[in-house]
Design a binder for these strands. Structure first.
Lengths: 242, 242
DNA sequence: ACTAACTTGCACAGCAGTGTGCAAGTTGTT
DNA sequence: AACAACTTGCACACTGCTGTGCAAGTTAGT
């Protein structure tokens, strides 16, 4: 008897579906209008405002759900991303973010306003840490600019990436175009010339461009001809798509 | 009798001062919280909410005032900025923007929300045009990246600049540091390596760094050893300061 | 010192949003 | 078929904001 601990019956199937619908609706609505009303969310989800309260006690609770989901989703994706070459690392992080535009955007959007700032901040912390680390290493290696404090630079890269995410959606670029742009702009802000950035992007097993073998700008370090970081680039066809 | 056309008496002196105080307060308040209440603005201005309505018929009217002021202010400053070398031009625009952080930030902040989008857009149009033009020329000259549509690139530069403005305020950089950062990040996004960007920045009559004579990356064009675009860099000690 | 201009506080109407209770419906599950 | 789970619509209280009217105070200009 597997269900003796939970109250008599399991939650109904469609109820769960609706819950998902609400979260999804909240994601799309709050992305463009962080202050949108629950009415708007309900409409987007095809439900009544009243029934939202059947799933979430308050607006903030819904927000919190969005935040934690987005956060864990991102850190999961990011967990598999690492490379010794900070340039490649940065590019990979960019690509990983691109695969999660929706989530990232909601987080970033919500980051600005109100008391959830703290929650958002910790949700984004893994990304920040990853970027900060890469920046520090890149500066040490002499590839990235050293005329700004690393944390500042990291933040700028982060914000530039968000800008690209927005712009990519607005100008609706194709998946590969977008991914490439996130990577190269990040590297540009880090300090690379656009040609070098492009070279790094090309060196990756991207869906479009054929991978050249070595990095032109690479001097000494670990020039092990790019071990296969293929794991990070697998895009599992957004399960949240309507 | 010089005042027969206007109603009996001219507006009182302190009333004008208060009006200014309100606008200034609105600028600072709305910069960090675009949806802030008039109560907040009043508090910042040291007045009562009620008396705001003595100067502005509605919240929107106050907003409109902010917008048009910011817009005209910026385009005035930008009017004197031009250079044949698109790299320098971009840097100069960055420096000019830096001198007007307050205004720019308010505009950009307000750009996102609501029905004033159109007003804001046209207020920022001169900046956009200037940047777009420089980008096009820079791409043509082979200095800037040509793998993205110019308008997209222009927008990205714009957003990166805004990000720098924010970050500079947050990490409170000194005036010259901030100005330099706006310039170099803009150029980075455009495609230059950070060294080249720094070289361009150094070549300008900046308040800190001594100007080196020529541009390392400069090949042929108009190498007339930098005519004096000093006009753009004059910072007239923000008159709006409290 | 007088007056008009200006500020202030308070009261009030109105609007939009949140969160709750309840009674009546609909629909999944057994 | 029956029951519980779920949704819905409506009513309601509450909050925070805008915008207005008015009466009383304060202050700049003459």
């Amino acid at each position: 008897m597997p269900e003796t601990l939970t109250p008599p019956r399991a939650p109904r199937k469609d109820a769960l579906e609706n819950r998902e619908a609400i979260v999804a609706a909240a994601a799309t609505v709050f992305r463009r209008e962080p202050e949108a009303s629950l009415d708007a969310v309900a409409a987007e989800a095809g439900l009544s405002r009243r029934s939202i309260y059947g799933h979430f006690a308050s607006r903030d609770e819904l927000l919190a759900e969005l935040l934690t989901r987005g956060g864990s989703r991102i850190s999961t994706v990011l967990a598999g991303v690492h490379h010794d070459d900070p340039r490649i690392h940065l590019a990979l992080v960019g690509a990983a973010l691109w695969a999660e535009v929706q989530q990232v955007r909601v987080l970033a959007q919500l980051a600005v306003h109100g008391p959830l700032e703290r929650t958002v901040a910790e949700a984004l912390e893994p990304v920040r840490a990853s970027v900060r680390d890469a920046v520090t290493r890149g500066v040490a290696a002499g590839w990235f600019r050293d005329d700004v404090a690393p944390e500042t630079l990291a933040r700028l890269i982060e914000e530039a990436a968000i800008a690209v995410l927005d712009e990519a959606v607005r100008a609706d670029l194709t998946e590969p175009e977008g991914a490439r742009l996130v990577m190269t702009i990040g590297l540009s802000v880090a300090g690379l010339s656009w040609q070098s950035a492009a070279a790094v992007a090309d060196a990756l097993p991207g869906p479009t461009t054929t991978a050249t073998d070595a990095l032109p700008g690479a001097t000494a370090t670990a020039s092990t001809a790019l071990p296969g970081p293929t794991t990070a680039l697998s895009t599992p066809t957004h399960p949240r798509a309507k």
